[in-house]
Design a protein around this nucleic acid. Structure first.
Length: 202
DNA sequence: TTGGCGATTGGCT
DNA sequence: GCCAATCGCCAAT
């Protein structure tokens, strides 16, 4: 864990206009959650791309009330409730009207760790933001944030610090049955906050 | 109207 | 590592 230096929010123009490129780009960047009590910051260490035409993606069958945020211009939040238990946070990733998203699968806590631990309950430090459902629980994200602009000042946004990013690994995505063979998962190699089995973390 | 299933988690072996 | 819990979505009835 290291102090957060020279934190700045992204302008939308800085985000790649392509789902897979954005998924890779976001490794090592940070997600900032502003709450009444203060600020929570997590460093993104694992993502998955759900590009245009991907049968495993929620945008595949077209726009519905549930997945509408995936069709917003890149840099908006798409949050959904999965498996009857967890909220999952995505970043919309294509042009307006085109469906695509990047799932944020894991963060390394940088700021507000005590608060994250309180909301997560009893857990190992490495597990605070390790997994997409744990991540949202740690930074208090739910359906209220669905559709919000992550490139605007406000309760939830994406940014960068000066901290260097380690080697980036690439693998199959986790937990899929359809279209499971494509290498669309990105992660910082060896980072203990990355989810999945050991072979998918190194 | 209904049944199967999923971008998961936590507890137990 | 395995498995049950949990519930909204959607395709098929």
């Amino acid at each position: 864990m290291s102090p957060v230096r020279r934190l700045r929010r992204f302008r939308r123009a800085e985000l790649p206009v392509d789902t897979v490129e954005l998924a890779r780009f976001l490794i090592g960047k940070v997600v900032v959650r502003n709450l009444k009590f203060g600020r929570l910051i997590g460093r993104i260490v694992e993502t998955e791309a759900y590009p245009i035409g991907d049968v495993a993606g929620h945008a595949f069958r077209g726009k519905t009330p549930r997945n509408g945020s995936l069709f917003l211009e890149r840099g908006h939040a798409y949050v959904y409730f999965g498996y009857g238990s967890s909220f999952l946070l995505n970043v919309s990733s294509e042009r307006p009207g085109v469906g695509g998203g990047v799932l944020l699968r894991a963060i390394e806590p940088l700021e507000g760790i005590e608060r994250m631990v309180r909301w997560r309950g009893k857990t190992k430090p490495a597990d605070i933001g390790r997994g997409p459902g744990r991540l949202t629980k740690a930074i208090k994200v739910d359906l209220h944030q669905d559709g919000s602009d992550l490139c605007a000042p406000g309760p939830l946004w994406l940014g960068a610090t000066t901290q260097a990013t380690g080697a980036i690994g690439k693998s199959v995505r986790i937990g899929l049955t359809r279209n499971a063979q494509r290498l669309l998962r990105f992660y910082e190699r060896g980072n203990p906050h990355v989810s999945g089995p050991k072979r998918l973390r190194q």
